[in-house]
C-alpha cells in the first residue's frame, strides 16, 4: 500500500506543477529533426530493406514528404503496434506513421490527422480452413498486442481464443507452426506480409472483412498546429499527385502487392 500512496503523491505533484506547454511544431523546426515512429516489420507500410538495412515503406514515404515540407531531417524510430501510443505520450516521437487506425478511444489520448488510407480487419489462414466469419468463434486466432483488430475480435467473437503477439510476423510464425489457425490484421498489411512468405501458396486471405477502418497520422494530444500541418500536407500530396505515386510505389500493379486504390485523401475527414 505504501507504493500506492507514493504513486498518488507523485501524480498529485505532477498535477500541481504548472506545465510549460511548448508548441511541438516549433520544437521540431528548432531541432531540425522530425522523429517519426514507423513499423519495421510490416511491409509495405514500414520494414527494414534487405539491402540498405534502412526502414522504408509507404508510411515512411509519407513521413519523408512531410519532413521535406518542413525542411527538417527525418528520423525513424522503429515501433511495434503496442508501443505507438506510449511512444507519443512519452515524447519519444513527434508523429506516428504506422498503419494507425483512427478510433474514438485512441482519439482521447492522441490527435489524429485526416485519414490517408482505408482498410479493414481481415485474416490469413491455411487454404480452405476459413471461409466465413461465423467460423471465427471456434478458432484460435493470433493477433498483435495493442491493435484494433484484437479489440474488434474480442467484441464481435467473444468465443474465439485470442493469442496476442508483439508483432505480426510473430503471429504468422505461430500460424505456420499450427499454434493458431488464423491471424488477424488490416487487409493491406496481410497482403504485404503474405507477399514475402516463401511458401505463400499454402495460405490465403479469405475475402471478407469484419470492419471498415481508416488510417491516420498520430500526433501528441493537443498539438493542434502540428496536426493541422499534417492535414494540409496530406491534402497537398493528394492534389499534386504525389500521394498516388507513393501508393503506386508500394501497391501499384507492378509491385509484389498489387491492390486497387479505393480511398483518396479527402474522401473522409
Amino acid at each position: 500500500m505504501k507504493k500506492l500512496t507514493l504513486l498518488t503523491l507523485v501524480f498529485g505533484l505532477v498535477g500541481l506543477v504548472p506545465l510549460a506547454h511548448a508548441d511541438r511544431l516549433a520544437d521540431i523546426k528548432k531541432a531540425g529533426v522530425l522523429r517519426v515512429a514507423a513499423f519495421d516489420a510490416n511491409p509495405p507500410f514500414g520494414f527494414v530493406d534487405a539491402k540498405s538495412k534502412k526502414i522504408v515503406g509507404l508510411d515512411v514515404d509519407y513521413a519523408d514528404a512531410l519532413a521535406k515540407k518542413l525542411g527538417v531531417k527525418l528520423e525513424i524510430v522503429p515501433t511495434n503496434p503496442a508501443n505507438r501510443i506510449p511512444l507519443l505520450s512519452a515524447g519519444k516521437v513527434d508523429l506516428v506513421f504506422a498503419n494507425f487506425t483512427i478510433t474514438e478511444e485512441r482519439a482521447k489520448v492522441v490527435n489524429f490527422s485526416i485519414p490517408y488510407f482505408a482498410s479493414g480487419t481481415q485474416f490469413i489462414a491455411k487454404k480452405g480452413t476459413l471461409t466465413s466469419p461465423e467460423q471465427l468463434s471456434g478458432l484460435r486466432i493470433g493477433v498483435d498486442k495493442g491493435t484494433t483488430n484484437e479489440i474488434q475480435l474480442r467484441e464481435q467473437f467473444p468465443k474465439a481464443t485470442l493469442v496476442a503477439y508483439d508483432d505480426t510476423p510473430f503471429a504468422f510464425t505461430a500460424l505456420r507452426n499450427g499454434n493458431v489457425q488464423a491471424i488477424s490484421q488490416d487487409g493491406p498489411k496481410l497482403i504485404g506480409l503474405l507477399a514475402n512468405v516463401p511458401d505463400r501458396d499454402k495460405y490465403e486471405i479469405p475475402p471478407f472483412a469484419i470492419s471498415q477502418d481508416y488510417i491516420g497520422v498520430g500526433a501528441p494530444k493537443g498539438e493542434t498546429a502540428l496536426t493541422e500541418l499534417v492535414n494540409t500536407t496530406l491534402r497537398e500530396l493528394e492534389a499534386d499527385g504525389r500521394a498516388q505515386k507513393i501508393y503506386d510505389a508500394w501497391f501499384g500493379p507492378t509491385t509484389k502487392t498489387p491492390l486497387k486504390r479505393i480511398f483518396k485523401i479527402g474522401d473522409k475527414t
Binding site: I85, P86, E105, G146, E150, I151
Partner: peptide
C-alpha cells in the same frame, strides 16, 4: 503469448490507455 500479468497489463493498457 502466455497470459500472465505483464501480458494482461499490456492488453489492458491497449484498451484503456
Amino acid at each position: 503469448g502466455l497470459m500472465e500479468l505483464s501480458y494482461r497489463a499490456r492488453q489492458a493498457e491497449a484498451e484503456t490507455w
